[in-house]
Design a protein around this nucleic acid. Structure first.
Lengths: 173, 173
DNA sequence: TGGAAATAGCTTAGCACTAAGCAACTTAAC
DNA sequence: GTTAAGTTGCTTAGTGCTAAGCTATTTCCA
């Protein structure tokens, strides 16, 4: 399964070759990394979405439930905390919460200490569903990763990505 | 700039720690890779968008122009080729082409050999603009990459990503 | 050669998001 | 204690996508 592959050509290599023909002056080294990251991200989003989809959840809804789940008992956060964590505007969050509340997966209740604010809490159904969804999503990821790389190279990849993430998310000048 | 970093904790490490507290049974190793890939992809999309944005282009428009540009002279493709390359429905492509044609960056003309089909061609303005935009986008990527990793580790990262991309884009069973 | 199937690009309806702005409320400043 | 400033969640308008369906045209093949 995980013997180091002979270096095959992938779709990103093909794009880079095309650029080399028409714009040989360009330095395309960064595409080798970011072009692939973009495509992997998109492909894995599709795979995960398929895993939750079987449970009737979209990616956005899953993200809300998972954020509540991993906050621990009593599975309660404010809409603001959720939209900040998920890098979503408050308008977008209102829509997600509406849908999830209608599906009975969470509950909105007034915050007892601040009458402007709300508390969003997972219901029992929501808790049970998200536990299954997290398992399914993670299984899809694990399967893909271990089919591509052994544990050692996967760990090496994770380290390189960690350093790149720091820089990428640092406020641009 | 590129001395191997002391292992700092990043946002993905924090999320994984949270899961470990509330669901210690989960195998979260794959998140180390795909969680970071997702976040880097998002962060870099924002950065690139900012680079083209200065030229009045959104990411979607840029992608269309760049695909035409790297196809080489005479910078002509069909709407179908474009939507297939960019993994976009034909409806979405119609909208992008409308906007770009209105801006004078490309032209639609009938295909002489197939009366169902069109040919989409970059105008001179479109060609000049996309050449500037590609330079700007690539500069933003190059800057981020070289601030995070030296050339050697960047190449190593590219190789690991290539293998992961093969598996991620392979049709799921 | 004629008819069925496939393909091209467009249209429409629906969805999920952002940006901007709102009223209600809380906090800070003096 | 009053006023100014900030925060919260929601609403609205606008954007860009998908899915499904349409017409016109081409290709396949019996």
């Amino acid at each position: 399964m995980n013997t180091p592959q002979p270096p095959r050509k992938d779709p990103v290599d093909a794009i880079i070759e095309q650029w080399a023909k028409v714009r040989p002056d360009l330095d395309t080294a960064a595409m080798e990394v970011f072009g692939r990251i973009h495509r992997i991200s998109r492909a894995m989003a599709d795979r995960s979405e398929k895993a939750y989809g079987a449970l009737g959840l979209g990616r956005g809804e899953f993200d809300v439930l998972a954020t509540l789940r991993r906050s621990g008992a009593p599975y309660t956060l404010s809409p603001r905390q959720l939209s900040a964590t998920l890098m979503l505007t408050t308008g977008g969050m209102t829509g997600r919460l509406d849908k999830l509340e209608r599906a009975g997966l969470l509950r909105r209740s007034p915050d007892p200490h601040d009458r402007r604010a709300l508390r969003v809490t997972l219901t029992e159904e929501g808790l049970a569903l998200v536990d299954r969804a997290v398992g399914a999503g993670l299984a899809a990821q694990t399967e893909t990763l271990s089919a591509a790389l052994g544990p050692e190279r996967a760990a090496q990849l994770a380290d390189l990505l960690r350093e790149l993430l720091f820089t990428a998310e640092t406020a641009e000048r």
